[in-house]
Computed example of a mutant assay.
Amino acid sequence: MDRIIEVLSDRQAVIDKALELILQKAEVAIEARGKFTIALSGGSTPKPLYEALATQNLPWEQIHIFWGDERYVPPDHPDSNQKMARQAWLDRVPIPASNIHPMSTTLADPAAAATAHERELKDFFDLSSGEIPEFDLILLGIGDDAHTASLFPHTEALQVSDRLVTVGFKDGQPRLTLTVPVLNHAKCVVFVVTGSSKQPALAQIFAPTGDELTYPARLIRPKGELWWILDQAAGERYVKTDR
């Protein structure tokens, strides 16, 4: 794992760096394999990043969009990660509908929806039994409690290693999430983190030792690159690039 921590002046600089990374990784992947696979994060932090991506002239037919997690709400619900990304980005570019792969949240049973999305991942990535998909890039954020995706402290989802997609819970509400092995199999993972409220979580995540069940983002140790892109408010303790 090659961990890179960059602390930039403000939120806009963070967005600019994340955009630069996505464009770079997309170009490399498309040149090498003819397609680029990215899993998106939700929440408010990446919205300006998606808006910036909507202004780019990219080979959209070669880009495939997935999500790292999704709240178990209808796709037109205000809390839907899919809805946010569509409004900010995907509905504004000529990407083929078949290149967008949301997690279904319309089934009565979230566990059945997780199984269905796992099947889609296996089909898309042409996986044999036991294989794990290799995303070109996975975008992640963290909460003030150091959760990432929908992997919350002291929940069963943290320890699921035999599935690609599982059900996570926050305050009793179900969510769908990629599992830790999938996140760690990516060619590149990019954490985008802004705001002073994230300082305590980052201190625990970056500590030499710590409890992964209490601070779930510590579990993310991908085989490829690991980028932490922080604004000054979040990362003022970490002013040096660390490899």
Rank of each mutant, 00 (worst) to 15 (best):
L178P: 03
L107I: 12
D126G: 05
A186H: 08
N184Q: 03
H101W: 10
P96W: 03
P153R: 05
T194A: 03
L107N: 04
L158G: 08
I132V: 11
P174N: 12
T115M: 03
I95Q: 05
L176W: 08
I142R: 00
H101S: 05
T166A: 14
I138G: 00
L151W: 00
D162Q: 09
M103N: 10
H185A: 06
P94N: 11
A149P: 02
I132M: 07
L151Y: 01
F135C: 06
V165D: 13
F169E: 14
L139V: 14
E134Q: 12
V182P: 04
F169S: 08
V192P: 03
T105I: 09
A111S: 14
Q159C: 05
I132H: 08
S150L: 05
E118D: 13
E156M: 01
A116G: 15
L107F: 09
A88C: 04
A116I: 12
A111N: 11
P102N: 15
V190R: 01
A186P: 03
I142M: 11
S128W: 01
P133G: 12
E156S: 05
G172Y: 12
A111P: 00
K122I: 14
F135M: 10
L127P: 00
H185N: 11
G172M: 10
L176E: 11
R119Q: 15
L90C: 01
E131Q: 15
T148M: 03
K122H: 13
T106M: 08
V180T: 08
D109H: 11
E118G: 14
Q173F: 15
H147N: 02
A146C: 10
C188G: 07
K170A: 10
L176M: 14
V160Y: 10
T106D: 11
R175C: 12
T115D: 15
A146P: 08
S128H: 06
F125P: 07
R119H: 14
S104H: 11
D145C: 04
M103R: 02
F125Y: 12
E120P: 02
G172H: 13
L158H: 01
D123L: 11
G168E: 13
T148E: 03
L121E: 15
V193C: 02
N184E: 07
A88R: 05
